[in-house]
Structure formats: C-alpha cells, structure tokens
C-alpha cells in the first residue's frame, strides 16, 4: 500500500532507538564519564559499599568529573606502530630495509671489536624506523629471517615534530616489548596477547624452540 513504507521506516528507527542490542559498539576513546557503578567496578567493590565509603568520589562522578579510560578492543594480530625489535636476535642483515616498499628503515653496521673469531662480527650502530612515513604493511616483519623485528600493538605515537617520529636504536632497545602476533604464529601458539599487556622476551619470540640443555648434551654425545 502506498504510504505504508514511510511508517515502516519510522518503526525501524524507533526499534533502533529503544532496543539496547542494536546500539553501536561505542568506544569513547580515550576516556569516558564514569558512573559510580563504573568506579565501583574498577575498585572491585560492590556499588553500595563504594558509595558509602567514597562519598566525595561518588559526588564527583555524578557531576561528571570522574573519567575512566576506554579503548577499542583490538585483536592480537593488530599491526601497530610501536615496533618490537630484539637486538639479541638481529644480525644486521638488512632484509627488512630491502623489503620495505618505502625505504624508511636505515641500518648501519660496523665491525665489532669483540668475539670476532666466534662469528659475531657485526655491531648494529644505527637502526632507524621513520614511522612518520610507515604504512604498517608489515613486509619488514615478513622479511626478517631471524624473528628479530615484530610489529607493535600500540597506536598512540602522536608527536609534535616529524623528526620525533623516527624511532632510533636506543628507543627500540629500551622500549617495552609487546610484539604483535602478526606473521608470528609461534607467539599465538604460546598464548601471547599484547593487547592484554603480555610482553615477550627475546628468547620466547623465535620461530623454533631453543633446545634444552639435555637435548644439547645428548646431541653432542651422539656426535
């Protein structure tokens, strides 16, 4: 019937207005107003006792002054910009630099003074990633033969200057290592989830299990 469609449409919008299950999954990044119930949940208390014990905080939250952080739930595979780089694993082969479509990774190596006879012949002097030009395709991670470079999990790297966006070797060394599981199935199989805050040591991120001491000794014995 002519004209009925208009009212059907009105019904759809009203349904979306009232039914909570049809609401957008809204994340009020970076923070949102906290009700006393939210605050009680953060404090792991039941709401009644929270309101009784923290009257000032309750009042502030009712006035809208209390906020709690709110972030989008991400998957562990998320390709973020805080690269995780393990200097113990990196040989300075520069595969990542060659594979980068934009050529934003700069690696300078020099001969190392120590242990030259045992094969550790190179020191990495410079390892710069210009994340201001990075498009987070992850090809550098794919190219790394020693699992030294990993995508990160964060995305809050806003800076005031372009030059600040270049991550240098000291920052990479000292940064908290929260590698993404992107192209690193071994991390997934270990239950690693950077979004939940788990960090990974250089020994854990490799593609292969490190042989145990007994293993090694057995093999040596067989030889």
């Amino acid at each position: 019937m002519y004209g009925l469609g208009l009212f059907k449409g009105l019904g759809v919008t009203m349904k979306n207005l009232v039914s909570p299950s049809r609401q957008f999954n809204i994340v009020q990044y970076p923070n949102r107003r906290a009700s006393p119930f939210d605050l009680a949940k953060v404090d792991n208390q039941n709401p009644v006792s929270f309101i009784a014990t923290h009257p000032l905080k309750t009042l502030r939250s009712l006035l809208g002054l209390e906020t709690i952080t709110d972030r989008m739930p991400q998957h562990a595979n998320f390709r973020g910009e805080e690269f995780a780089w393990y200097d113990r694993r990196c040989t300075g082969c520069a595969s990542c630099a060659k594979y980068c479509p934009l050529g934003i990774i700069k690696i300078v190596t020099g001969t190392s003074g120590v242990n030259q006879q045992e094969g550790q012949s190179y020191d990495i002097d410079v390892f710069d990633i210009d994340i201001g030009r990075c498009m987070f395709c992850g090809l550098c991670v794919e190219a790394c033969p020693y699992d030294a470079l990993h995508m990160g999990s964060g995305f809050e790297e806003g800076k005031y200057r372009r030059s600040d966006l270049v991550i240098n070797i000291d920052q990479l060394k000292s940064a908290e290592k929260k590698p993404s599981t992107w192209f690193r199935p071994q991390l997934t199989s270990r239950g690693h989830d950077p979004i939940k805050g788990s960090t990974a040591d250089w020994e854990e991120v490799g593609r292969h299990e490190k042989p145990s001491l007994e293993d090694q000794s057995e093999r040596w014995a067989k030889r």
């Binding site: 049809r22 957008f24 809204i26 009020q28």
Partner: peptide, 14 residues
C-alpha cells in the same frame, strides 16, 4: 544521535 545509535554531545557539562 540516539536514533542513529550514536551518543551525541556528552562532554561539556552534565
């Protein structure tokens, strides 16, 4: 905003 399943202005004041 509620019709469009959004939140609308909610930062300034109650």
């Amino acid at each position: 905003a509620r019709f469009q399943v959004r939140r609308g202005p909610n930062r300034n004041g109650p």
